[in-house]
């Protein structure tokens, strides 16, 4: 929990209350939310308001959910794209992993379970497997080098489609890490400004038009996802 050494300006106290109530117009709401990212005292104040107001939710009665909603959620999260044909030239730069050790680690993630590196470096892994087990993608992130290595196996995306890898950290919009090769291994440097977001993030792959999403946000279904965990 954040402690709050400096008393907040009463105007900020009121703004935090407005934010939690939800009365702020959109632009102000967005602005306030951006302030929250850098102001722990303000975040603590928002938390206080959330706590204070939460009992008011008791007066909202539960309503039975329509039967078609849950399948829709499952579709959005878990439905793999069923597709075979590839033929798209991978724009991803292919890298031989070089170090046999790293290859062994990736192999270990896919088939043998976690493997610890002898030098004790901080490593994160994510095993992404689609719901039907057809698509498999293992990722290994090395904090020291700032490099994410991926190993792609199983079913490939359909004709004119690519799998795109996303970094999801909390409530932030998913950040694209690039388009995956259809098969084999690849390494991608994580830009310095994103490295602090990798720890405990979730990785996900979506099915996108060849070359990746044209809009910057994921357009296709999530094929598989898994949290990054320390090994």
């Amino acid at each position: 929990m954040t402690t709050d050494p400096d008393p907040l300006d009463p105007r900020d106290v009121a703004s935090a209350g407005e934010y939690v109530l939800g009365t702020l117009p959109r632009a102000e709401r967005d602005l306030f939310r951006r302030r929250l990212a850098g102001e722990p005292a303000l975040r603590a104040e928002v938390t206080r308001w959330e706590v204070h107001f939460h009992p008011l939710s008791d007066e909202v009665a539960p309503v039975d959910t329509p039967p078609n909603l849950w399948p829709g959620i499952e579709r959005r999260l878990f439905e793999p794209s069923v597709a075979r044909d590839s033929g798209v030239s991978p724009f991803w730069r292919w890298l031989g992993l070089g170090a046999g050790l790293a290859t062994a680690v990736l192999a270990g993630i896919l088939w043998l379970g976690p493997v610890r590196l002898p030098d004790g470096g901080q490593l994160w892994v994510s095993d992404m497997v689609s719901a039907d087990g057809a698509v498999r993608l293992a990722a290994l992130y090395d904090e020291r080098s700032g490099e994410m290595r991926v190993s792609v196996g199983g079913a490939e995306p359909g004709a004119g489609r690519d799998f795109e890898l996303w970094l999801i950290q909390g409530d932030r919009a998913p950040i694209s890490l690039g388009v995956m090769p259809h098969r084999g291994q690849a390494a991608m440097p994580i830009p310095p400004e994103l490295r602090m977001l990798v720890a405990n993030a979730t990785l996900a792959i979506t099915d996108e038009p060849a070359g990746g999403t044209p809009t910057g946000v994921a357009t296709g279904p999530v094929v598989a996802s898994a949290p990054l965990r320390r090994i």
Partner: peptide, 23 residues
């Protein structure tokens, strides 16, 4: 709901309040 109409894609970029502890 808003004086400014243009969609702001950065709006989702900040951590939401739900990731903060609720006592």
């Amino acid at each position: 709901g808003g004086e400014i109409d243009d969609a702001d894609p950065l709006a989702d970029d900040a951590p939401g309040p739900e990731d903060r502890a609720i006592q």
